[in-house]
Design a protein around this nucleic acid. Structure first.
Lengths: 103, 103
DNA sequence: CCAATGTGTCGGAGATAGTTGACATGTCGG
DNA sequence: CCGACATGTCAACTATCTCCGACACATTGG
């Protein structure tokens, strides 16, 4: 049940941004590090957390390393979210009504 | 994008469980604490984090306190997630193809 | 009022996460 | 081979999280 890993990975803004960047296409590690006001090792650690959550895949390309998005684990987040959707979508009854019937 | 709070709130299993419980209907603080193998103050802290993320609302009922789910902020998570959906849904091109066109 | 009850908050201990500079590893060009 | 380069990993420090026991505060019932 490392499902915790995905939610944990999304808990940091740098990692969410990394995923957004990688959604546009694969990127070299150095390029990724330059996008942030952080040391290169710091970004590398964030990438490792994403790797542990299976959200990215890396590939050696010459002496560089290219990162790819593997978004499948995000489906787990969507699955978790789904039961809540009706609370804000197609909202026919007000929150007060729902609260009322549980009183 | 100030709402790091929602992603942070979802990063802990106890808090995710709390939201699921509250999705079934409002609950008294004491009831909620009993659901976990945790001290009452610990659960109270988790509830405070959920309150700061505007994911729950609390109401004084006699000498007890009743918590309600306010799921609207979860829409923000769904919005963030949405651009990634096509990566695992209706997957017509393989990952390798996408990688190829960015080489 | 006063004691009991239900809860939030505080202080501090222990664990974990985030960051950085220094170093190790592996790859390429000559 | 060798030096330059790209990058991961380590040690150590700091910040933040998680948790608990103790205490504070408000509400209720006698």
């Amino acid at each position: 049940m490392p499902d915790d890993a995905v939610f944990l990975a999304l808990a940091h803004p740098v990692r969410r941004r990394l995923l957004q960047i990688l959604a546009e296409g694969p990127r070299i590690a150095g390029d990724l590090a330059e996008q942030f006001d952080l040391s290169r090792p710091a970004v590398a650690e964030h990438l490792q957390i994403l790797r542990r959550a299976a959200l990215v895949r890396d590939e050696q390309v010459g002496r560089q390393r290219r990162y790819h998005l593997t978004a499948e684990p995000l489906a787990e987040v969507e699955d978790w979210l789904h039961p809540f959707e009706h609370f804000w979508r197609a909202r026919l009854r007000s929150f007060a009504d729902i609260a009322e019937e549980n009183t």
